[in-house]
């Protein structure tokens, strides 16, 4: 950790905050504070430089045009790439996930370069938009409980050899490639198509980000009663919808 408090950076809420993405920030902040950690939350608008000394960066989902604008501004700024070089933890959702990759298709139908922080390449899907509850098994290397999320996207993301799938779907589409993969991760950088927002339904992923930032193996437990109840309900709903 770079300072005495956990520095949580929310990247471009003015462009990439369409699907309740603030929730991922709020959940991470809340769970860090519940462990007695001081948290400094920094919201960076797209006309401000991205600080390079953050501990955890969250980047959310957005519509096609804001996604292109965000990619342009993040490339020009360079701060997120420097933060990644510094070993920062980065968690990205949907449009933000695509931006972390090599390229995606922008609102003008053109190939837009991403930041190259994840070895993935995104295209626009030709099938129907993927909308609905998702149930998936998170990569066993991460040793986390099942992933429950809600997807709402049309993108298709192909993974290169430099990343591992974040999860394998039991129900739902995930990366949309038809191979059952969902999201991608490498070292301390993560991408997923899940909203919900995903950390509200999977608080142990928020805890993983905090653990990676602190470089510790475990955190003191907190009261997960309502998270557990929501998880059970959504897992049951996804299962029922699939049968």
């Amino acid at each position: 950790m770079s300072t005495s408090s956990l520095r949580l950076v929310w990247v471009y809420p003015d462009l990439l905050s369409t699907y309740g993405d603030q929730g991922n920030v709020l959940v991470t902040e809340r769970r860090a504070r519940q462990r007695g950690l001081p948290v400094e939350r920094v919201d960076i608008r797209s006309d401000q430089p991205v600080p390079t000394s953050g501990d955890i960066y969250l980047i959310g989902g957005g519509e096609d045009r804001p996604q292109r604008l965000a990619a342009e501004r993040l490339r020009r700024d360079g701060g997120l790439n420097r933060a990644a070089d510094n070993g920062a933890v980065i968690f990205s959702v949907c449009a933000g996930y695509q931006i972390l990759g090599h390229e995606f298709i922008n609102d003008l139908g053109q190939r837009e370069p991403g930041l190259g922080l994840l070895d993935v390449t995104s295209a626009r899907g030709t099938a129907e938009r993927c909308v609905g509850d998702v149930l998936a098994d998170i990569d066993e290397q991460l040793a986390l409980p099942q992933l429950t999320g809600f997807e709402n996207h049309q993108g298709v993301t192909h993974l290169g050899p430099g990343v591992r799938p974040f999860a394998r779907v039991r129900l739902g589409n995930g990366n949309g490639t038809g191979d059952g993969t969902e999201g991608a991760w490498c070292d301390t950088i993560f991408g997923t198509y899940m909203h919900g927002p995903v950390l509200a339904r999977n608080p142990h992923i928020a805890d993983l980000l905090i653990r990676l930032a602190l470089d510790v193996n475990a955190l003191t437990p907190v009261d997960d009663r309502w998270y557990d109840a929501l998880r059970a309900e959504r897992i049951a709903a996804a299962t029922a919808a699939a049968t």
Binding site: Y19, G20, G23, L26, V131, G132, H195, G196, P197
Partner: peptide, 9 residues
Amino acid sequence: GTDTSWLWD
């Protein structure tokens, strides 16, 4: 709308 993520806004 079946996406409840707006609750977080």
